[in-house]
Design a binder for these strands. Sequence first.
DNA 1: ATGAACGTGTACTATGTATGACACACTACT
DNA 2: AGTAGTGTGTCATACATAGTACACGTTCAT
Lengths: 117, 117
Amino acid sequence: MPHFGTTARQIRERLRESDRRFSLRQVARRVGVEPAYLSKIERGVVAPPSEATTVRLARELDQDPDVFLAMAGKVSSDLQEIIRRRPKLFAELIRQLREAPDEAIFRVVRVVRDGDW
Amino acid sequence: MPHFGTTARQIRERLRESDRRFSLRQVARRVGVEPAYLSKIERGVVAPPSEATTVRLARELDQDPDVFLAMAGKVSSDLQEIIRRRPKLFAELIRQLREAPDEAIFRVVRVVRDGDW
DNA sequence: ATGAACGTGTACTATGTATGACACACTACT
DNA sequence: AGTAGTGTGTCATACATAGTACACGTTCAT
């Protein structure tokens, strides 16, 4: 699993090559945190930020919030709530899919999405 | 969603009717917390305990840990880790199943478990 | 009727989480 | 040469989490 801060920094620096609005300070301002704090986050000096801040940062860097949250060691609270509503069913389903290959999970997603079964 | 403390207390008191080893004090001792603390938990004076304590309490009361964790507003960390390993796939799957009837989810569980598809 | 067990009130504490504020040195234009 | 912008070091803080410790009045069993 890649490091949260390092990854965020790499993505930001890549974006910055073509758009100098992606300086640490400007991104920090748009995300709504202090530059010093974002600096520490990117270098791993502090733990990844809260869920809300992580999601705002992901959006700012045009990344998938769930992936960013995963790197931050978290799971989106809306997913957690879905699980909490029916804990037995979801717990069994998820543990069942622990070792399943990506393909198998994706097949399940498709089947459920299309509903034709 | 039922209240964590209230539910725990009811279950414990039911168990106690046939086995007086289920006093608050004795359960607290076996679970590894102070009686005063368990008392406060059961009455909702304090927030539900940590994941580890919640699971030990569930086991002690012969309940499903995932259900107890759900009532405590949490999701088992082992489930979270499974999701974090493949955040996109699991996020899509779970959101897909948010509104699905129990029956549909259980059908998916069975299909995946039996693997014949 | 007394000692053990019971449930609970009050007070305290240790650790973690999630930042903010400010100052500093460096660089990049204009 | 100066000013605007940049990244970072240090210090402080507010709040939440997850409990412990002890004392008190009550009840239960012998």
